[in-house]
């Protein structure tokens, strides 16, 4: 079972996505802030990371940078960003993010993207 690290401070949306991904057969670990994500990543690298850009303590961009440069991992990263936040998305791509999805999120679409990224690897 593939392991997904879901990093989002919005509990409601995160639980919904968690439910959807879990239902699709993935093992999802949800972290509500950046510090927790960092600790989790230091323990174990998941198969894919789905992260919101705006998070307390440790933003999505920092997360991408941390994974690519500090951990030197090539794990796929999908960024969730708000609409009209294209600059951050571009920055995330420059840092090494693999894909992005904008809010409002379609859980089905996210599932498709996650599956595609995992199949690439």
């Amino acid at each position: 079972m593939k392991k997904i690290l879901l990093a989002d401070d919005d509990e409601l949306l995160a639980s919904l996505l968690n439910y959807r991904l879990d239902k699709a057969g993935y093992k999802v670990h949800w972290s509500c802030d950046g510090r927790e994500v960092k600790e989790e990543l230091e323990k174990e690298i998941p198969d894919i990371i789905v992260s919101d850009i705006m998070m307390p303590y440790f933003s999505g961009l920092e997360l991408v940078d941390f994974v690519r440069n500090t951990l030197e991992s090539k794990v796929p990263i999908i960024i969730i960003s708000s609409a009209g936040n294209e600059e951050n998305v571009l920055s995330a791509f420059e840092l090494g993010a693999n894909d992005f999805i904008s809010k409002p999120v379609s859980p089905s679409e996210l599932l498709v993207r996650v599956t595609r990224e995992l199949n690439k690897g």
């Binding site: 809010k103 409002p104 379609s106 859980p107 679409e109």
Partner: peptide, 15 residues
């Protein structure tokens, strides 16, 4: 409240 919050973050069939 939950439904009102979620409708902002969801789109597509879920919405």
């Amino acid at each position: 409240e939950i439904l009102l919050d979620l409708q902002r973050d969801l789109t597509g069939d879920a919405r």
